[in-house]
């Protein structure tokens, strides 16, 4: 709406956008910690994630064992820290696959239109028609059960989302006045595609990619939970929860890894929302 506030609100929003809201700051801290855990788990714990002390099994959380211990006497905090790398990197792989493939499909089908668009649009329709978790399950079944494959499957199942968003952005931008203007000023088709359409369309892909990163953590955790990821003694968060569900009398085995999964995804979502708003 073209009322009063617009001019001023955008001006003041520009000012506030330089400051990071406290919840976003907290989210960045959590993500930084998670990244640190996955890069150098050894810095954060001196215990072994694989070998436990049978005498210390199923201890409740305390000062010695922050998250308690599991049925084999392994420190749960250590297992969570060591499980971070594969839980987070695999989500990253998934997002990269989905964003690159989906982005490319959307870019080409939106920019060139015609039969390219028709072919890709039907492919995207098909990918969307199969429930994405089911799709991830059959893809991981087809290529074999391990965490990397689960990440690939998750990526494939999210291609359609990126393709669809990219396509609509590209179509919107292709019709923008500045694109025609560049054409009049001598810009070739490829120049316009690469220098005008792609940078503008990618801007809206960033918050989506961040959001999809959070979703991928959840999907990969779900696949691990069903046993389609790396087998034990790996300690992916989904797998930890899956093991914990058989020991519900010692609920920290579920709650600790679950809490971390939720905190990570929640932070990622918060950052995505913030990116969308400041754009």
């Amino acid at each position: 709406m073209s009322l009063i506030a617009d001019v001023h609100l955008t001006a003041s929003r520009r000012l506030t956008s330089l400051r990071v809201p406290p919840t976003v700051a907290v989210s960045f801290v959590i993500i930084a910690l998670v990244i640190a855990w996955s890069l150098a788990p050894g810095l954060f714990t001196s215990l072994s994630p694989v070998n436990g002390i049978p005498a210390d099994k199923l201890l409740a959380p305390g000062t010695a064992h922050w998250f308690g211990t599991d049925h084999l006497g392994r420190d749960l905090y250590t297992r969570v820290v060591y499980g971070t790398a594969s839980s987070v990197t695999s989500a990253l792989i998934a997002v990269v696959i989905a964003a690159v493939t989906g982005g490319l499909i959307g870019l080409l089908s939106g920019f060139f239109g015609g039969w390219v668009d028709i072919v890709f649009a039907r492919l995207v329709d098909v990918l969307l028609a199969i429930p994405h978790f089911l799709l991830a399950v059959i893809v991981v079944t087809a290529i074999g059960f391990d965490t990397t494959n689960a990440a690939i499957a998750t990526g494939v199942s999210a291609v359609a989302v990126f393709a669809r968003v990219m396509r609509s952005e590209v179509i919107k931008i292709r019709q923008a006045t500045f694109v025609e203007s560049s054409f009049l000023l001598g810009g070739s088709r490829w120049h316009i595609l690469l220098r005008h359409v792609l940078p503008n369309a990618s801007r809206s892909l960033l918050p989506l990619a961040v959001l999809q990163f959070g979703l991928s953590i959840l999907v990969i955790a779900s696949l691990a939970f069903l046993g389609y990821g790396d087998p034990p003694p790996a300690s992916d968060w989904g797998l930890l929860i899956s093991i914990g569900k058989d020991y519900l009398k010692w609920p920290w085995l579920v709650y600790a890894p679950a809490f971390l999964t939720i905190a990570t995804v929640l932070s990622v979502n918060r950052i995505s929302r913030w990116l969308r708003k400041t754009d």
Binding site: A176, T177, F178, S181, S182, H196, P199, N200, R203
Partner: peptide, 10 residues
Amino acid sequence: QNPFTSLDPT
């Protein structure tokens, strides 16, 4: 007509 749309914002 509209300089708000005729220049690439990036």
